[in-house]
């Protein structure tokens, strides 16, 4: 579904991502872990068009998507959430949900019904008329997740979805990701929450200082010496 090859991104003299390659198979969850500054978010930004890579290719469903603007990447089916959720704080929760489908040809009733169903999945249905700024940080993250689903992406990039989220809400997140995966969605999940990551992901890419230092199943990366060294400094 997604193939990233030899991706490199520099900021001035600093190498943020160097020669990164990985593949994501359909209906799977690929985890990305690594210490702060290891290039995880930069990699996501290169995939969804926020950054233009200095080298390498990003191929999505057989198409080279390098050079596409972020809105074009979204339109071909790649959704994205952020560590700090980008919710429209002065729009209502329902208006937030409808923002990705403003130009949709579907009827208002159909769109509202879909939005309400998605909000109900994450226990936000009763907040539909509230302003975005009235939600807690965790609720904003959930809103951002289901808002992405309104334009029905195939691949969803999740950046630190569990950071700063109440454990109870984390359970909701967890269930929602698993449910969406069963419905055919594919994920790249960047997180520091190793426990969640190990149980959700089919494969995990481990990064350090902009480079991939390991890739494999949860069990494989847990045993990898380079990973242990990067995390524990041992």
């Amino acid at each position: 579904m997604l193939e990233v090859s030899h991706l490199t991104k520099n900021f001035g003299g600093t190498v943020a991502v160097s020669d990164l390659s990985f593949r994501v198979e359909p209906q799977t969850v690929l985890g990305m872990i690594g210490p702060n500054g290891s290039g995880k978010t930069t990699s996501l930004n290169c995939v969804n068009g926020l950054y233009r890579p200095d080298a390498g290719r990003v191929v999505y469903q057989g198409r080279d998507i390098q050079g596409l603007a972020p809105h074009e990447v979204a339109r071909i089916g790649i959704g994205r959430t952020f560590q700090v959720p980008k919710v429209f704080k002065r729009l209502t929760v329902m208006e937030n949900m409808l923002a990705p489908v403003l130009s949709s040809h579907q009827s208002d009733a159909e769109l509202h019904e879909r939005a309400n169903a998605l909000l109900a999945d994450v226990n936000l249905a009763d907040r539909a008329a509230r302003l975005g700024e009235e939600l807690s940080g965790g609720q904003m993250k959930l809103l951002e997740l289901v808002r992405v689903l309104m334009f029905d992406p195939t691949l969803i990039l999740l950046d630190e979805p569990f950071a700063g989220v109440h454990p109870q809400m984390k359970t909701v997140f967890f269930a929602e990701i698993q449910r969406m995966r069963e419905q055919g969605k594919t994920f790249i999940l960047v997180s520091h929450d190793l426990t969640s990551l190990y149980s959700l992901c089919d494969r995990i890419v481990v990064m350090d200082l902009g480079q991939k230092i390991a890739e494999g199943s949860a069990d494989e990366v847990k045993r990898n010496e380079q990973v242990i060294e990067a995390y524990l400094g041992a």
Partner: peptide, 24 residues
Amino acid sequence: TYLGKAIRAIIQNREAVPILGIDP
């Protein structure tokens, strides 16, 4: 209107608009 709502959205959070498929 569609354009009006998109203008309100972009005024509030310019970065969030393109990731939702809207051409800023």
